[in-house]
Design a binder for these strands. Structure first.
Length: 267
DNA sequence: AATACCGTCAACCGCCGGGGG
DNA sequence: CCCCCCGGCGGTTGACGGTAT
């Protein structure tokens, strides 16, 4: 009933004012009450989106800077397209690293500009040899892990490199550093056998990752392995092998070569 | 000048997971 | 344990403006 009369389409200035006043008065959240409180003939979702994407203070409009675009590309490469785990939020994750940008902004920008670039560049690299054929997937389900020795996480150990189809930008080696607890750090890393991702693919080169899998529970060790998103209280990992993919949930920012400040922001 | 085509982006839709009853 | 409601997200649409023909 109410649905039929709900207004759609672009927002007017008057509607923006009403919504802004409402949120300033009652705060964010309880979006189902917002249309009534604000006197708006809009659905809750429409109100929420309008506020979060445009009316909220500090929202940055306009074009993306070179740095922002660079970060989007890097993070998108690392996070990949979330086709399986719907509970995770790729765009929100990326947007979280771009102050003032929303997931919707980032997504639109990617869909209109960057995706095309990527597609065209993928064609360019198509002539390169494919990674070794995908073999039967052996999935190691995530489970809590304790680590006796996590020195490879802390010291200047050369860490995982990520193959980048349109440049070696992400294939540089970065030193590992201890990461503070954070949300949503799951990353999918494509492992090939012949180049940069894990050294040359030898057993030795893969040791850091293997140790994550292999180490059994050890008292007093660093706990790893919970897969519950948004609730990570320590360094966590979710590892899964199969289809030449390893999912690792602790080194996102490390791999792209950014540092985390005390405030949890990226440098 | 008129029309077609293309790019951008605000907005909508449908689905999912979490939480509360 | 089940159901319902809500918040939130990714995918998609469509309006609009700019450019090409």
């Amino acid at each position: 009933m109410e649905r039929l009369s709900v207004r759609k389409g672009g927002w007017t200035e008057e509607e923006d004012i009403l919504l802004r006043k409402c949120v300033e008065k009652y705060g964010e959240g309880r979006w189902h009450q917002v249309p009534l409180r604000a006197g708006l003939n809009r659905c809750r979702k429409s109100c929420r989106m309008r506020w979060l994407s445009y009316l909220k203070p500090n929202i940055k409009r306009g074009g993306f800077s070179v740095d922002e675009v660079d970060l989007i590309i890097r993070l998108h490469k690392l996070l990949g397209n979330r086709q399986v785990k719907m509970s995770t939020s790729q765009w929100a994750l990326i947007a979280g690293r771009l102050p003032g940008r929303t997931a919707n902004h980032v997504k639109n920008y990617w869909n209109t500009k960057l995706r095309k670039k990527k597609v065209s560049t993928n064609k360019d690299v198509k002539s390169k040899p494919e990674p070794k054929s995908i073999t039967k997937a052996t999935v190691i389900k995530p489970r809590p892990r304790n680590f006796k020795n996590i020195s490879w996480l802390r010291e200047g150990t050369p860490f995982i490199n990520v193959c980048h189809p349109f440049g070696d930008d992400l294939c540089k080696r970065y030193s590992t550093m201890a990461l503070p607890p954070s949300d949503n750090n799951e990353v999918e890393i494509n492992i090939t056998n012949n180049n940069s991702c894990l050294g040359n693919g030898s057993e030795i080169d893969q040791e850091p990752i293997k140790s994550v899998f292999a180490e059994e529970n050890v008292k007093g060790g660093q706990k790893l392995g919970t897969s519950s998103m948004n609730k990570n209280k320590g360094i966590t990992s979710q590892l899964e092998r199969g289809s030449n993919m390893v999912k690792i949930q602790l080194a996102t920012r490390l791999i792209v070569g950014y540092r985390v400040t005390d405030k949890g922001e990226l440098n």
